[in-house]
Design a protein around this nucleic acid. Structure first.
Length: 269
DNA sequence: GACAACCTGACC
DNA sequence: GGTCAGGTTGTC
């Protein structure tokens, strides 16, 4: 799915397009995407969209009725604003009808989740409380200190949302390549210098990716349904067998934490 | 820490 | 037919 830059792009898009809009009605097409109960239409109708924000890969849509809708897009979830008369795409599971257009939640694989909660309760939700600091907000010293306590492979540490939230498979691989760290390295054994460098690369890559409106490999689109552009700047992700852009060695792929890791065995030590 | 599960679709 | 996919969670 969408990782931090893609989720940030969607949040920014929706803030631009539907902030201030009023909900007229909701159309629940697939009931199983809801965590907890399905909200009553009456409780949503008339509520205004106060604004959207993000923590890690979770999207919060705050409403004027003291409730919020939390979305997680998982692998193939999409949130797209459409006009009322636009044709409804296959795999659309929820339509939130607004006074101006409508917000549609679409998800081919149906891993995505929607949760209607009281805004004040968000921080107390177990799955939100468990999230580590956001990847764009953690200070360098904190990150370095915390990584040095982990005796697991660095790749699996970066993917762990309880450790740090927002990174996924693409950006972990790209950040490790930029930092010249092998994904199999035990986190606690990596030098402080390399880890400081990793923090800088993480910030740089996530911001550049958001600037390019995210990476579209097969499913991701922004809040208007358009693809991102950062896939054109990937250096190792999805490039197994191709030459390393820095040294020409063959880029390798191996499985860590059940996910493919792409890396240059020569550049990344 | 490895693996299956949750799903559909693309590709070989 | 089998494998793989921007994620997460629950099981041994």
């Amino acid at each position: 799915m969408p990782e931090l830059p893609e989720v940030q792009t969607v949040v920014d898009d929706l803030n631009r397009m539907i902030k201030g809009c009023t909900i007229r009605d909701i159309l629940v097409i697939t009931r199983t995407i809801w965590r907890g109960g399905i909200p009553r239409k009456a409780s949503l109708a008339g509520a205004a969209v106060k604004g959207l924000e993000r923590k890690g890969k979770h999207i919060f849509m705050h409403l004027s009725n003291n409730h919020s809708i939390i979305f997680h897009l998982k692998m193939t979830g999409k949130l797209i604003v459409r006009e009322q008369n636009d044709p409804i795409a296959r795999h659309t599971h929820l339509i939130i009808k607004l006074d101006r257009g409508e917000l549609r939640f679409n998800d081919v694989r149906r891993f995505g989740v929607v949760h209607y909660v009281k805004t004040k309760q968000i921080a107390k939700l177990d799955y939100i409380a468990a999230l580590g600091p956001d990847a764009l907000e953690i200070p360098m010293d904190d990150l370095v200190k915390r990584i040095r306590t982990k005796k697991r492979k660095i790749k699996s540490v970066l993917l762990d949302q309880r450790f740090i939230s927002g990174l996924g498979n693409i950006y972990s691989d790209e950040i490790l390549f930029a930092s010249r760290i092998n994904p199999s390295r035990i986190a606690s054994k990596i030098s402080v210098g390399k880890l400081k460098n990793l923090h800088g690369n993480m910030t740089l890559i996530l911001k550049a990716a958001a600037q390019s409106r995210g990476s579209s490999i097969s499913d991701y689109v922004d809040g208007s349904g358009n693809v991102g552009g950062f896939q054109n700047y990937h250096k190792v992700y999805g490039k197994a067998g191709r030459p390393c852009p820095d040294c020409g060695s063959r880029i390798m792929k191996l499985v860590i934490s059940g996910r493919s890791s792409h890396y240059c065995p020569r550049c990344q030590r």
